[in-house]
Design a protein around this nucleic acid. Structure first.
Lengths: 343, 343
DNA sequence: TTTTAGCACTCTCTGATGCCGACTGCTAAT
DNA sequence: ATTAGCAGTCGGCATCAGAGAGTGCTAAAA
């Protein structure tokens, strides 16, 4: 008998989560029966709810109101109560069509990807710019701007490209620059910055200056990761009823604009594959304590990768969010593979 | 006598605007005297306010409350009542130090610039990516990725750089690509896309494909302008008391995220130099009817330029906003000049 | 003609009050 | 272990009254 009772309790919890996610109001014992014919009376449900409350799955905003799920409930729900589903085929179609062809650089596509995810789940979505696990030198180009200044274009293994200008103490010619570029491209292509440092080249002062700048950029690129990211759907997230209180809304807005929380997500991401779900208090960062994150890596393992994820109130449709993140990371990975070739 | 009275009325209007900007509450006749010793009684001020109301400068939220400025008042204020001031020297220092050195591409600096402005005025600020009035070809670079695919790097006259991959029907070698690059660089450097089209080169099929892609990119770059822009300080703007009502807040948030309004600003900007102020209903776009914009071009006239501006509720410190926009556009212009050299 | 004093009037804001409806917890019966 | 019934709790809403702020108007003064 206890087995059947356990099952019913799971069911009740599942219904509570679903209902609360949909309606954002405490769910009452009778409301549970209204839509789902379990063969029992409201009183039984109330007993079950009392049990769930005692065990810390749900809470009541005030005495004798309906129950709202706690972190523990969401966690249990994600782990045991919700079977993973694929994104509906039509949604998949729409996204694929929207992303269409590459060509104008990642910027546009990543932004669109974030926007699509956001709309899919009605919350904010973020996509970080892809980054090499360890960048490798791919190509260098030097263009004279004027006598004492050159434009340096550096392409790295993640197909990211950096350009910057550099001024010199002595005059330089385009010939000199070409020579330097040829040399660097011959010697450095395919190397990481550490391998480059190990290789002692004979260089002119001008070349030395260029090479150290290149190394610095590569180091910087290895660090910088969340600096550039695409966050879309803020309006959707902040339209959720949890943000009716003005200060909470502004607090979250501030958090989002600062983007410091992203660092946190990325750190977490370092461990393991697949879709990660962080619910409320599970976040180390206090400012995220009443939000949830669903995110995943994308990219090519051990080569390039970024993070794609969803952020919203704890009351979110985790099933949908997980599907969306999972699918989108797949699409983006595929896209990266196509762009980078077999490399 | 009427002359003195006019002057006093101007003064009253000025005080009303200042007070309302600071406090965001209707300003009462006695409140005006509280802080500013005009040599008259409250009743006189009331008469003046009645006059101002009749003339459409101010309105009352309800019978017998204080007055709030209308669009006409702000316009008059900006035009006649507020002498332009420079940004405080210390602020100038801080911004210059913050922007520091160029080097990592515009992205970072433009974002910082927007952030600084936003903080300066307590509203949202936007900086668009600089764009050539008409882009010129500057440099092309071709790198083989594999047999049927190449990475194309195109540098344009605004120092903007585009890279994209292209696949070919026939195998290509790096030698072929180098040859093509040399040819294009020799023939096309310094030309606009129209001049390029006029010049009929003899090209191989591969080169033809590359060249048409380049032209397309240049055309695209000429169009695309507001696509990439940096919007900072949303939290500040939405923290203003005019957005206590939830729907207005979400409405504006939606507007900001879509960024379609930027197109509007840019269109307006086309005419004339200097700092532009658009107040409330002066906006053609209905969605901006209760917001104000303060913006300006920056860049090098007839070469490259972008837009820098502030957006906020009509109740904003126009004097400060104008100073900030003016100063920032100066700083960015200077920076562009330095980066592009004399060109 | 312009300014001032005085006063009645209008409107917002706040807190108190009371009632309705929703839902539970408890007890006792099944 | 489940159910029925009922008393009790609490949020939400509408109503109301009083205080405070500030004006418009009128008539007198400058």
């Amino acid at each position: 008998m206890t087995k059947a009772a356990d099952k019913r309790r799971d069911n009740v919890l599942k219904i509570i989560v679903n209902e609360y996610v949909a309606k954002a109001t405490p769910v009452a014992s009778e409301a549970i029966l209204r839509h789902h014919r379990l063969g029992v009376s409201p009183a039984t449900i109330r007993n079950d709810m009392a049990y769930l409350e005692e065990e810390g799955y749900i809470a009541r905003p005030y005495t004798s109101s309906g129950g709202v799920p706690l972190d523990k409930a969401y966690r249990y729900y994600v782990e045991n109560l919700s079977e993973n589903v694929d994104l509906p085929a039509e949604e998949q179609q729409r996204i694929r069509r929207m992303l269409g062809d590459v060509g104008e650089g990642y910027d546009r596509i990543l932004r669109l990807a974030a926007g699509a995810m956001a709309n899919l789940v009605g919350n904010a979505a973020v996509v970080t710019y892809p980054k090499s696990s360890e960048n490798r030198f791919k190509h260098l180009e030097l263009v004279e701007i004027h006598q004492y200044m050159a434009l340096i274009v550096l392409i790295l293994s993640n197909a990211v490209l950096r350009r910057f200008t550099m001024s010199f103490d002595e005059p330089v010619t385009q010939e000199q620059l070409d020579e330097a570029a040829v040399k660097f491209n011959r010697e450095y292509t395919g190397l990481t910055k550490r391998q480059m440092a190990r290789k002692k080249l004979e260089v002119t002062p001008v070349e030395k200056k260029i090479s150290s700048a290149v190394t610095e950029i590569m180091a910087h690129e290895d660090e910088l990761e969340y600096e550039s990211s695409y966050l879309e759907g803020l309006r959707l997230m902040l339209g959720q009823p949890e943000f009716t209180q003005r200060d909470r809304m502004l607090g979250v807005l501030e958090l989002m604009e600062a983007k410091a929380w992203l660092r946190h997500v990325i750190d977490w991401q370092l461990t393991g594959e697949g879709v990660k779900v962080i619910i409320g208090e599970e976040n180390h960062e206090a400012s995220l304590h009443d939000l949830s994150l669903v995110f995943s890596k994308y990219g090519i393992p051990d080569q390039v990768g970024g993070t794609v994820g969803i952020i919203g109130p704890k009351r979110m449709d985790y099933r949908r969010a997980i599907s969306a993140v999972c699918y989108m990371s797949g699409v983006l990975s595929e896209l990266m593979t196509r762009v980078l070739g077999e490399d």
